[in-house]
Amino acid sequence: MAGIGGAETTGKKVGWGLLNAVVVIYALFPVLWIVSLSFKSSKTLADGNFIPREWSLENYENIFSTTEFTRALINSIGIALIATAIAVVFGTMAAYAIARLDFPGKNLLVGVSLLIAMFPQVSLVSPLFEIERGLGLFDTWPGLILPYITFALPLAIYTLSAFFREIPWELEKAAKMDGATPGQAFRRVIAPLAAPGVFTTAILVFIFCWNDFLFAISLTSTEQSRTVPVALSFFTGSSQFEDPAGSIAAAAVVITIPIILFVLFFQRRIVAGLTSGAVKG
């Protein structure tokens, strides 16, 4: 009996393992291809080999040799971090109010934020372009940060209010009885418990800002505020007949690294079941 059961689990394990392997390969293959391209020299770029015949750092040296890419990298990191920080702070406050309070216009607020999230961004590009030129925000950091916050906030509010609803309200009452001001109750009891939600939201918002191409290409014109996804599209070879694919591949690998770091860093904070043990049942 045990033998049959054991065989069955082994069979299942192999089956699941294969399925997982297929999914992982399917997802990672393009990434590996890009990595492979980035290490090829310009001569072997188009040879179709998966493993480069001669490894070279030529492409990486290229992209870092001019300010075009490094400047864009700084812009991207700065803009995405600032937009994420602001969106998460405001999103936390708004989500807390929505989850805990009953105030007039609450449903309207939720509805409007949902509306913003669903609005096709491409239809906003031309008006935003005109507005930002009028206000002198065109081709500046705030010119990108503002629309990013606008579109990230509904996302942040939605994710966070779901997390806040999970936290037992009695904990806040208990904190008040223990002598906490509403601010202290929020900072010392509610916020630490909502931390997994805050970090999850931060990751989502950061990725959204980091990956955006539409706003970045429409609302910037120079290196001063151009972000990496846009800078990539402006890459050219050393002559106009040279294919910049190698450089683009190298840059793509470089801009993937911050995202991986960001996720890995915050993943540790996302501990499921942090509220267990607070209340019985």
Binding site: A175, K176, M177, T181, P192, L274, S276, V279
Partner: peptide
């Protein structure tokens, strides 16, 4: 007065312990 200024302590049915 706010609860914190009344100097009274409360035990809740659900205990409401701070899980972190």
């Amino acid at each position: 007065k706010a609860p914190k200024d009344r100097d009274i302590a409360m035990v809740f049915q659900s205990y409401a312990l701070y899980p972190h």
